[in-house]
């Protein structure tokens, strides 16, 4: 039998955090992207409140450029578990003239999500937004608290964060502020995968090796799609790939892989020499790309 006791410790910690959210806030919401981290959050939330239902809704900020497999999966999960799902669309923010579509070679709707998210928080008066960010993903995230206070403008004041001591989480806020909550802060990518394997959690098919039309740019594997800008000289080829991280099609790069089931994916992650966000085009913009987006209210 595989030794999963350290994942158990992380699971106990995450369940504790979920219960603190339910107890300390009036209108929490779980931000659901259809990715493996937010699917893991749903499982943890189920465990935290069993036999009661998860006492808050899920919300998806839909860029409109998602992988169709993700959206299909999302709708099925919500139906099977009897959860409440709120969807807000980046397209609406564009139509309302609040944000402008990026153009050109590296255009993506990823950063446009922030406006749609902040508007939705205001619309529903959410006071806690639960997300699947992990500290091991990226340097700026390594400094993130479990309960991270955002001001009226959704901004992160990274130099003035509340200290978090022992297990105690301080969720006291003023009206208009909200808290971003990260129950799997202390999990690594491998921990998430080990947990998915142990719990036999279903995830979208794009996480497993499949044949896909792709093209290569800057050493990254891009999906050939209407949503992704492509130069004429960038040749489309078909290869076996899978995704390690799933965001918008325009900002998520694939990896060459033959791993078609969960145990071979776990093995692949274990042997991997490139980090998960190494396949995130949005982080490549600059050394401080993530920190800048977080200050502006990005998740």
């Amino acid at each position: 039998m595989k030794d999963t006791s350290h994942v158990n410790a992380l699971e106990n910690e995450a369940i504790y955090i979920f219960r603190e959210v339910a107890a300390q806030f009036e209108k929490p919401v779980l931000l659901f992207s259809g990715g493996k981290d937010s699917i893991t959050l749903v499982r943890l939330a189920q465990k935290a409140f069993w036999p009661a239902k998860i006492p808050f809704p899920l919300m998806h900020i839909d860029t409109g450029h998602n992988f169709p497999e993700t959206i299909e999966f999302r709708d099925r999960l919500v139906k099977e578990l009897g959860l409440e799902l709120i969807v807000r669309n980046v397209q609406d923010s564009i139509d309302q003239g609040k944000v402008k579509e990026e153009t050109g070679r590296y255009s993506s709707r990823n950063s446009l999500q922030t406006t749609t998210l902040l508007d939705a928080i205001e619309e529903f008066k959410f006071d806690a937004c639960i997300g699947g960010a992990r500290r091991d993903e990226e340097k700026a995230r390594a400094k993130e608290r479990i309960f991270s206070v955002r001001d009226d403008f959704g901004q992160w004041d990274e130099k003035n964060q509340r200290p978090e001591l022992f297990d105690m989480l301080n969720g006291q806020i003023e009206l208009g502020q909200n808290v971003r909550v990260f129950p799997i802060s202390n999990w690594t990518e491998l921990d998430v995968w080990s947990y998915i394997e142990k719990e036999e959690i279903e995830i979208p098919s794009i996480y497993f090796a499949h044949k896909r039309k792709i093209f290569l740019r800057d050493g990254l594997i891009w999906s050939h799609s209407d949503y992704v800008y492509q130069e004429e000289d960038e040749e489309v080829i078909e290869r076996m790939v899978r995704f390690r991280t799933v965001g918008d099609m325009s900002c998520t790069a694939a990896v060459f892989s033959e791993a078609s089931d969960i145990s071979s994916v776990v093995q692949e992650i274990r042997d991997s020499t490139i980090s998960e966000r190494g396949a995130r085009i949005d982080d490549k913009r600059s050394e401080a790309a993530m920190e800048k987006r977080k200050q502006q209210g990005y998740f």
Partner: peptide, 10 residues
């Protein structure tokens, strides 16, 4: 280093 950072390895 200004703030507590968390680093993971196994």
């Amino acid at each position: 280093t200004i703030d507590v950072a968390h680093i993971y390895f196994s």
